[in-house]
Design a protein around this nucleic acid. Sequence first.
DNA 1: AGAATAGTGTCTTTAAGACAATATTGG
DNA 2: CCAATATTGTCTTAAAGACACTATTCT
Lengths: 245, 245
Amino acid sequence: MTSEAENNFLSGYDPSIYDQPICTVDVVIFTIIEQQLHVLTVKRAEHPYQNTWSLVGGFIDPQIDLDLEATAKRKLKEKTGIQSPYLEQYGTIGNQSRDPRHWSLTTIYFALIPADNVKLDAVPGAVDIKWSPLKDSMIKEKLAFDHNEILAKCVERLRNKVLYTSLPVHLMPKEFTLGDLQKIYEIILETKMDHKSFRRRILNSEILEDTTKFHHEGKRPARLYRLKHQLETHYFLRNIESSSA
Amino acid sequence: MTSEAENNFLSGYDPSIYDQPICTVDVVIFTIIEQQLHVLTVKRAEHPYQNTWSLVGGFIDPQIDLDLEATAKRKLKEKTGIQSPYLEQYGTIGNQSRDPRHWSLTTIYFALIPADNVKLDAVPGAVDIKWSPLKDSMIKEKLAFDHNEILAKCVERLRNKVLYTSLPVHLMPKEFTLGDLQKIYEIILETKMDHKSFRRRILNSEILEDTTKFHHEGKRPARLYRLKHQLETHYFLRNIESSSA
DNA sequence: AGAATAGTGTCTTTAAGACAATATTGG
DNA sequence: CCAATATTGTCTTAAAGACACTATTCT
């Protein structure tokens, strides 16, 4: 395929002479803490927006990142220590105005991590990092760049997907009860759900398997389930009809 | 917000000194010709992959494109003359190996254009451009870069979305019959559908309005509909169950 | 026993699948 | 009238909603 002419062209090619956008990756990291959806935010050490809270993110490093997802995973690991959570590409925003430095492009991922994996202080030097609780798809902080909008869009995507997928299982610990799982659905959707319908839906999907164990706490013990050994997200044929239709 | 320190930082900022990916936008342009799904392909004039067929695409030009979608629309207009078709961001692929020049990142859009809008020769200098028919999500040609894979993924996305949305209306002319629309669904899904169920589904969604006109051809005339004056895609609460479940 | 949480039974509702039947045109 | 295409009728099925009921634990 590569002709001599093409080889000559390639050896003379210098990307730095062209005007190109700034390229970054941002990761919206969700978890559930104390019955509320939270996002991980970090305080920026450098300009622009120095000392402003922002989403986790940074430059693609062509020397160390094999691909885009590797950049996202590297950032995630740096901030949380977590290696392989649920990670999905949300999309890419690129325009003239979002970064004062230059035309800027950012590819956005969102990650779901189980509540019990949250140990921020395990990360060395991670002082200005925190979980921010969400209210109405937003957090209190005014974030750097267009990060508040990015966050709102990711929450919207998450809410929509929860209506027809099993995504919330990725927010659960290894073993959990159906009641626990329903609570997570309800937190994300901001709606109460009928427990009979919920169990039918989840159990019929056959994504869970019965650990023969029970969770004892307070009253009647609840059966513990775990995710079947397969990572694929289940797509239901019908949406939950509640709330945001 | 912008402090003196930040201004100093910004005025001294030169993006060209950092190693950054090559940034492009590719557009997968679909239409239906003679009962078959087709994609627009162009023959590359320059290295790399000179004289090889490829998807429509090119560099982001920070001087003229306000945002990413503007780049996609510019490319689309250059090649087809069409200004505002249905355009959706598929996602972004970025890695070390897809372009021989450098670490490369491309944001992919897909567009749906009505079959009757196809006038390629209306575009000046558009000689090496053609509609390639799809078979099994692929075309005969071996395309440049990873464009065959990109195409396959966009077809997959299109197929999936057609199961729960009204997307195919964007492939229709201004006025069309329910039979015509059903044919388009069937072509994309590669399945026959029950016409009663199909009409019920579409009519109940209330996305169409009755032109009081009829299409006369051959036998019994069919009622002509048009898309209601509103661009939003309709999301059905239940999937079509046929085919790729 | 009573409160609290876990789990089941079952009737209704909604929208799709299946397929037969009717309607309207041109020849 | 016949062939072909458009359109409707209607029974069945799948899965969700609604809600009453039973089960198991602790105090």
